[in-house]
Simulated scan of single mutants.
Amino acid sequence: MTNHLDILLDMLSALPDPVFVLTESGRYAALIGGKDRQHYHDGAHLVDFSLYDVLPKAKADWFLEQIKITLEQNQLRIVEYGLAGADVDGLDTQQGPEGEIWFEGRVQPLATPVNNERAVVWVACNITRRHQLEAKLQLLSETDELTGAYNRRKLLDALTLSLASFRERQTPVAVVLMDVDHFKTINDRFGHIAGDEVLRGIAHHAMAHLREGDLFARFGGEEFALLLPNTALDVANVIAERLRQAIASGNFLPESHPPLVVTASMGLSLIQPQDQAIETILRRVDNALYRAKNSGRNCLVVDG
């Protein structure tokens, strides 16, 4: 006669996703399922170890925090997180997926204590493909199709966050608006395809020289914007001026075209303590850009 307990254990061990029992102190009490080595590593050795025995402290802190929140709320919680096999001490990384894996964790309190501790059951589902698709779609929604730079929407979102950060921490944030000089003349003389090449060339040139954390966006038409977090006015001035000079000395059309000198006018300003909305910042930078155009173009005007 078939033993129903054996059937139940076989069913649990055959679960496609790994199911962990984790105690309130962060100890692995049990692990079942997750046998598919295309999607998961073998974590059987984790049982009886603490999160802090096998994970970097920052990651262990995060997992322990999720356990405690779940126990406090006493309800199912769903979290997403990235974890690579190399992050977990003792895993055989040859028998499992490479690189960082993205998981959806379904964390549910257990009614019965485990080893005299409150505990949760944590089901980890591999959502790497979904995460990659979402990241790709997010990038597409934030990217200008022609130039590959960020688009106006992304810039406005980033500027909104920068304003909030400035009001909280008072770290300097610089904003630059840049307009390609006489762009209509370029289109009229060389055609719109050549004009597109100029815009692409400027964007690729600018993005290649950005620092980590800087953001370059196509603001609209032949106008671009540069957001420089944690950047004092004198440093922002140097960065913008260097870019302006690089554009003036660059060659943005194929050799089949006649030589073309491309220049840009720029306006620069910092976020100010009195700024309550990003429209105020953009208006001030736009005024500086307008003054640059009225000063003969191919120059940088700094507001404040």
Rank of each mutant, 00 (worst) to 15 (best):
I247S: 10
Q245E: 14
P18F: 13
P97V: 04
L228A: 04
D42G: 03
V238W: 01
V302T: 11
L133N: 00
R189M: 02
Q66H: 06
L146E: 03
R152F: 05
L260H: 14
T128C: 00
I247D: 08
L282Q: 01
Q94R: 12
A58S: 15
D144T: 05
N115L: 13
S13G: 04
Y150G: 00
L282M: 13
D61Y: 14
N251M: 09
G105E: 10
D303R: 08
D42N: 15
E100R: 15
Q75K: 15
F219S: 04
Q75Y: 05
G250T: 02
S141G: 07
N151Q: 06
F190H: 15
P172H: 15
I7Y: 09
D42W: 12
Q73L: 13
D6L: 12
S256M: 08
R152S: 06
E255F: 08
T2N: 06
T23Q: 04
G201N: 03
L76C: 10
L22I: 14
V79A: 02
R244V: 06
A208R: 14
L15G: 05
K184L: 03
Q108N: 06
F183R: 14
R244E: 12
A58T: 14
E241W: 05
E142A: 10
L300P: 04
A194K: 06
Y81N: 09
T143I: 01
G220T: 02
G33W: 07
G43A: 06
R284S: 01
R130H: 06
N151R: 04
I78T: 06
L199Q: 08
V47W: 14
K57V: 11
T93A: 07
L83E: 12
P113S: 07
M11W: 10
V114M: 13
A14H: 12
T171R: 15
V123G: 00
P18N: 05
R77I: 03
P56Q: 15
V88Q: 11
F49L: 15
R242D: 10
I127E: 02
